[in-house]
């Protein structure tokens, strides 16, 4: 029995490989593939990594030393293309953890860790309508692409400020994209049985 069918997002491979990472929320409205360069040395750094597309494709920008997340393989020549080489969205939970975790012994996908860490740090709990209001879908999409490419993206280390509603949206998207219930296939029905059909659907939206 499925109470609420999960929405399926398009796969990352269906997205244009040149999708740029916007430098801030304001610039999202202009979906130009070429990102305005604020820092020429930074841009040069990225262009040095790959002479491909025009977009930098990197939101976790900053000094060159903290640009690369710890899980990023050295010499990732396809850095700008953001191919889903370390896919964490839409894959089984265990696989996402295998791709990237933040702390050894802590079985949490890095993307979940980074989102909660970021939201805690930026006091999302003091924001009206947090988790209810939608973040920019472009920011969310770009962050998803980055995580699928790098496995882990240190949102906090970025010079960029990501809108907390977008980060909240990213977390929700990750959960929605899980291929099977977080309660596991085996136990899902047992969980449903706990509250019974009537009670379980009491607060069901829609």
């Amino acid at each position: 029995m499925t109470f609420w069918p999960k929405k399926k997002e398009e796969t990352p491979s269906a997205m244009p490989s040149t999708a740029p990472s916007q430098s801030n929320a304001q610039s999202l409205l202009a979906s130009s593939p070429s990102q305005p360069s604020q820092d020429s040395s930074r841009r040069k750094y990225f262009l040095g990594k790959n002479s491909g597309s025009g977009g930098t494709g990197v939101g976790s920008s900053g000094s060159a030393s903290n640009v690369l997340p710890p899980s990023s393989a050295p010499g990732s020549s396809s850095y700008l293309q953001l191919a889903p080489i370390r896919q964490v969205f839409g894959v089984p939970l265990e696989q996402a953890i295998e791709q990237a975790r933040v702390l050894s012994g802590y079985d949490l996908p890095a993307v979940v860790y980074r989102c909660i860490e970021y939201l805690n740090f930026h006091q999302a709990k003091m924001e009206e309508g947090i988790y209810r209001l939608n973040g920019s879908s472009t920011v969310i999409k770009n962050l998803k692409e980055q995580f699928n490419h790098e496995g882990d993206v240190q949102l906090m280390a970025s010079e960029e400020y990501y809108d907390i509603h977008a980060v909240a949206g990213l977390l929700k998207l990750y959960l929605r994209d899980l291929p099977s219930s977080v309660l596991t296939r085996e136990l899902h029905k047992d969980f449903l049985q706990v509250v019974g059909k009537d009670i379980g659907s009491l607060d069901c939206p829609l």
Partner: peptide, 25 residues
Amino acid sequence: VNKMTARNVGIVFSPTLGIPAGVFS
């Protein structure tokens, strides 16, 4: 402050997680 009561959070996350609001609550 944030207007997100347990019920509101449940309304958002129950469908996201695919689990009943009663369980989530």
